[in-house]
Simulated scan of single mutants.
Amino acid sequence: MRLGRREPRARATRPGSGVQRPPNPAADWAADQVAGVRDDPLRRIALLARTYHGPEGQAPRHLPFRRAAMSFMRWQARRGVLNSLSSQPPGSRWWRAVNDRLLYDGCEAMARSGGVPGEPSSPAVVLWTAFIHHPTARNWYRAHNASIVSGYLDNRELAEQEPMPERFFLNVALLRVLYTHALVAAPKLALGRLAVLGRFLGDPRLGMAGVFLSLGRVLPDRYPPAAELRAYLAHEHRLGRMLDYGVIQPRLQLLYEWSAHELGLPGLRDLVHDGNPVYAWSYQDRDVWSPPAGPLPRLLGRLTAARP
């Protein structure tokens, strides 16, 4: 993606925030890019892909990292959550807003790396800039997850408007991306005595990360979900259920606290309570997070218990 130069607008508005800011050419350019693709899921995907090519169209060290991000966004497009609000059925205001944030942060960081002036509009842009300069797995997760978590925090009111099954799955999506980050950056927290496997399993450049980030067998195929939550839970893929309840759930409080520190986003701590996800979800309904009965979840929990 080659950057064009232009005079900045008088004021720029960051997607999803509704907050007006002083003139900032890099932020303005990013806002224009996102606005141009907002109602076309395929163009959203194309914009994401271009950010991994860098401002001059050549960034071979960054390209392998787009694998996980592209896979997840293609799944969102197939499900229909990124459809325009005038489509039938319309897309999700929440999913669109969070996706806007991811695209915006990446575009702004790329513009700044290409010489477009402007102070970073958010901590996530700083982390994306760090990834651009030093493309490592840990830096990618810090940047990617900072954008995603910021999108969650900025759009809680939209999340509350989602159907109950969707609100449950928003929490599943979040805990999965946080856990996959920990595989790379805090493997003892993520896998305990199996920590040596963490960096291999979580590397976004490799296919194994897709096992943890894949939500196609967890979330409904289409949006909005048509069935009751219990129906989806009854048909949840066995491997995903073992991962969520046998491995991730026992360390959830520690995971959110570690992630809040790692990403510099203390508000993330408010999205978990006593080891139960509470993003747009009542703590009183925490029974849905109870692990299934049987020896396998307990065995997985013991084998992967978090270690200091």
Rank of each mutant, 00 (worst) to 15 (best):
D40C: 01
H53Y: 13
H53I: 07
Y104L: 09
C107H: 05
P64K: 03
S84D: 15
S84M: 02
Q76M: 12
G80Q: 07
P90E: 03
L82T: 02
R79D: 00
P60C: 05
Q76Y: 08
R66S: 15
Y104D: 10
I45Q: 08
R44N: 03
P64L: 08
N99A: 13
A59C: 10
G80S: 08
G106R: 15
S71K: 14
Y52W: 12
G106W: 05
S71P: 00
L63Y: 11
A46M: 01
L42V: 07
S86E: 13
P41H: 06
G54K: 04
V81T: 12
A68D: 12
S71V: 09
P55I: 01
A109Y: 09
Q76H: 14
R50E: 13
R61C: 08
F72Y: 11
Q88S: 15
V98P: 02
R96G: 05
G80R: 07
H62V: 12
Q58E: 15
S87H: 13
S86W: 12
Q58H: 14
F65E: 08
W75S: 15
H62Q: 15
W75I: 10
Q88R: 15
R78W: 07
L102M: 14
Q58D: 15
G91C: 06
Y52V: 08
R43N: 08
N83Y: 11
G91L: 06
A68K: 07
A77Q: 09
P55K: 02
L48E: 03
G91A: 06
R61N: 09
P89G: 10
Y104Q: 09
W75R: 14
H53F: 14
E56K: 11
A97M: 02
R96N: 06
P90L: 09
L48H: 02
A97C: 02
R43T: 04
L63W: 11
A46H: 09
S86Y: 11
W75C: 09
R96L: 10
F65T: 04
L42I: 06
D105P: 02
V81E: 06
F65C: 07
P55F: 00
S92I: 00
S87P: 03
R101M: 10
N99V: 04
S87M: 06
W95N: 10
R67E: 09
R66I: 13
A77N: 04
L85K: 04
V81N: 02
D105H: 12
R44T: 03
G106I: 02
H62A: 14
A109I: 00
S92G: 05
N83S: 14
V98G: 01
L102T: 11
